[in-house]
Design a protein around this nucleic acid. Sequence first.
DNA 1: TCTACTACCACGTTTGAAACGG
DNA 2: ACCGTTTCAAACGTGGTAGTAG
Length: 436
Amino acid sequence: MQSIRDLKPNFGPPPQSMAAGPDAYMQGNIRLTLEDPDLWKSFHDLGTEMIITKPGRRMFPHCKINLAGLIPCAKYILLVDMVPVDGFRYKWNKEKWEVAGKAEPQPPCRTYLHPDSPAPGSHWMKQSVSFLKLKLTNNTLDQHGHIILHSMHRYHPRFHIVQADDLFSVRWSVFQTFTFPETSFTAVTAYQNTSITKLKIDHNPFAKGFREEGTNKKGVQTRVQPAWRNEPRYFCRSAYEAYDGEEGDMPKRKEAEGIKQEHYSPGPQSGSTSPPGADHRDVYNTEQLVPAPASYQPQRVHDFGKPPSPPQRGQQPQRVRTQQLRVPSPRRRHGARPRRLKAPHTRAPPGPPGLPRVLNMSMAHQAGKPGVIGHHLYSPYGPEQPLGQWSNPGPTQYPPPHHLTADYTTPAVHHGYHHGNVAEWSQYPLFSYSCW
DNA sequence: TCTACTACCACGTTTGAAACGG
DNA sequence: ACCGTTTCAAACGTGGTAGTAG
């Protein structure tokens, strides 16, 4: 059913203090499923691209998850960050992505905190959790708390669930981390793959103006069909399939259901042209406990089987209105067309003044040195209230992804337990909390 | 010349205060 | 006065495109 390959080298028995606790058991039952997996897969098959801009750009598709198995009355914090898929920089050449060299040093790592956090498990489970407001930027000096990425690099989002009563106790809490392989993407400043552009136009409501039907005046040739749900895919070939090398014959999932047996090869292991080419709706699940420095310590393996009730296609998710505030800005563009003038609304921001809630964590750790990390929390509940500190955000290089593994029978890759207060539970920056 | 990036544009959607009606 | 619905415009999100830098 499931196997764990290539997780972490230093697996060992979990500390009993952690393994035996009721929380540990309950946390092990947490299930996380990705909403709109077919849409994600559609993009993934082509090689998802996400636009990054200086002012910040939303993701599309955006991250939306369903949670189950939380303790209803316990409070949780949800976080998302982006980690490089591999250590390469890419370029688009002749209709396919090619490795263009070594990855640039990583910018300060930031983590997006879901605006509802902290909230009880019942809150997270009663409806899908959307990270719609998450924005990506290539501005390393960004002051808005957006997640900073490098263009032409590949990333994938990680979801972190932390049982904690408040933001300040995160460092003492247990993290559980999940990823969805089909959410990996290439950060770009302009779309390279025209098929991706078409797909975005077709499915993103904000891009309706570029569809052929309607009032599109730009002559963009796109499919007219509005929805991806009820039609066969007009695209067929993954851009990643264009990669030569070991993954060229990577098995593709035959259909949306059924047991998958493809092998997910992490980038570094599959040569220089590393992008994962297969879709991976179902994944293995492992957990790990409080890490010893620089090592994962998987505790046990869960076999969750199929997700309990995967989101139904076409199901209109309940509209979620978060407390996310709008960052007041004078006018977005210089030459925007004039608006009709009337008594101008004095729109109060829907939330207290401030900024998107983003944790900024920069790793100071170097090989063999537990890092003292800085992180910056932007909270909508107060203007620029850093709950942490910046500290020495020197450029760091992400490690190769260890977590992308083989057989999948559960919705998400579950990376397991780790404590937020341990600086080097892994090489990833997120958990380099030192203080809040 | 090529590639990556930016600024601007014109479109559409979202949002919430104001207006309105019961 | 209260509550629910509708209206409407500012704010925002989107991809295209031209221009620029290296």
